[in-house]
């Protein structure tokens, strides 16, 4: 199990019902973690419409999870 810090924004924050949490997960990478959370919380965005940031920088979905890492799932952006 790996313990990670999660921050949620926009539609994912509302669907999760909170903005941040520390989670212990069996997921090996960011994609597996998103799948786990989608199944648990009913996220409506498919993974191919979301990006992931790890420790404050965009990252690949297959990045292995590191103990203590900070992950943010990025829904489709809409600035302007």
């Amino acid at each position: 199990m790996t313990s990670v810090q999660l921050h949620y924004f926009a539609v994912l924050r509302e669907q999760r019902g909170l903005a941040s949490e520390v989670l212990s997960t069996p997921a090996v990478d960011a994609a597996a973690l998103y799948a786990e959370l989608s199944a648990r919380h009913g996220f409506t965005l498919p993974v191919d419409r979301v990006r992931v940031a790890i420790d404050g920088e965009f990252a690949s979905w297959n990045t292995p999870l590191r103990e203590g890492a900070e992950l943010v799932f990025i829904p489709p952006v809409a600035g302007g």
Binding site: V11, G79, G80
Partner: peptide
């Protein structure tokens, strides 16, 4: 402005 709308993590 075009790149900002397409890439920057801001939600509306």
């Amino acid at each position: 402005i075009d790149e900002t709308k397409a890439r920057v993590p801001i939600w509306k």
